[in-house]
Simulated scan of single mutants.
Amino acid sequence: MLYAILAYHVEGVVASWTPEEDAALMADLHKVHDRLHQEGRLGPAARLGATEQACTLRGPGTGSITDGPFAETKEQLLGFYVVDCDTRAAAIAAARDLRRVNPTAVYEIRPVSLYLPGTPFPVTAA
């Protein structure tokens, strides 16, 4: 079963990190990423851009666009992982591994019902 692990954090906190602090956290996260990849369980993962550049499409017909992705939460969705786990408990364990090295983040675990394996992400500037 595939699970999405959605990474939430207070965007202002993340933006306040020095390049060195961000690189240190990413190095720790890459250890978890590398292990999940070696186990053949890590699918697409991405760090999302700033929420101030996001918009939301909602409503009937062609819909309307509003600024921001805003839900009524303190944290913003800043990234996601897709992991292949046999059980919900295994997906939760993978999220706990990520949280262990990024303890101020919030991770939502959600089953994925549609996944197109082998679809590459385009390479873009960070």
Rank of each mutant, 00 (worst) to 15 (best):
G40D: 08
I109L: 04
R35S: 10
P120T: 06
V101M: 09
R58M: 13
R35W: 01
P122G: 04
L25Q: 03
P117M: 11
A7K: 06
A15K: 05
R96P: 01
L36V: 06
L114P: 00
L48R: 07
R88M: 05
L98D: 12
G79L: 05
Y115R: 04
Y81C: 00
A94P: 02
A50Q: 12
Y107H: 15
T56F: 04
L78Q: 07
P19V: 07
P111H: 07
Y3H: 10
G12C: 01
A27N: 07
I65A: 13
L36E: 10
R99A: 15
R47G: 14
A46E: 14
F80I: 01
K74E: 12
K31F: 00
A23L: 01
P69Q: 11
A27K: 04
E39D: 15
I109S: 02
T73P: 01
M1H: 12
R58T: 14
A46F: 13
Y115W: 09
A95L: 00
Q76E: 11
M1V: 07
A93I: 06
E20P: 00
A50E: 12
Q76T: 06
D28Q: 15
Y8R: 09
V10K: 02
G12D: 06
T104G: 11
R96N: 15
R110Y: 13
T66V: 13
H30G: 11
S64M: 11
G61R: 07
M1F: 10
G63R: 10
C85S: 03
D97P: 04
L116P: 01
L78E: 02
T124M: 14
L57I: 13
A126V: 08
I65D: 10
M1W: 11
P120G: 03
R41K: 15
E39Q: 14
C85G: 00
S113K: 01
P120M: 03
L98N: 12
D97T: 05
T62G: 07
P117E: 13
P122M: 08
Y3E: 03
L29C: 10
L48K: 08
A91R: 01
A105D: 06
A89V: 05
G43I: 02
C55A: 14
L77F: 04
E11C: 00
H37V: 15
D28R: 13
P19Y: 09
P60I: 05
L36D: 02
T119C: 13
F80P: 00
G43H: 04
P19D: 06
L2P: 07
D22F: 12
L42C: 07
L57Q: 08
R99T: 15
P122Y: 07
V13F: 01
R99Y: 14
L114N: 09
K31C: 03
P69A: 14
P103L: 09
D97M: 09
R110H: 09
A46M: 13
L25R: 04
G118S: 08
A24C: 01
A24I: 02
G40I: 07
R96V: 05
V32I: 09
V82P: 00
T51K: 14
E72Q: 14
V106S: 09
V83E: 00
I92F: 06
L25N: 08
S16C: 03
P19W: 07
D97R: 15
L6S: 06
V32N: 03
E52Y: 10
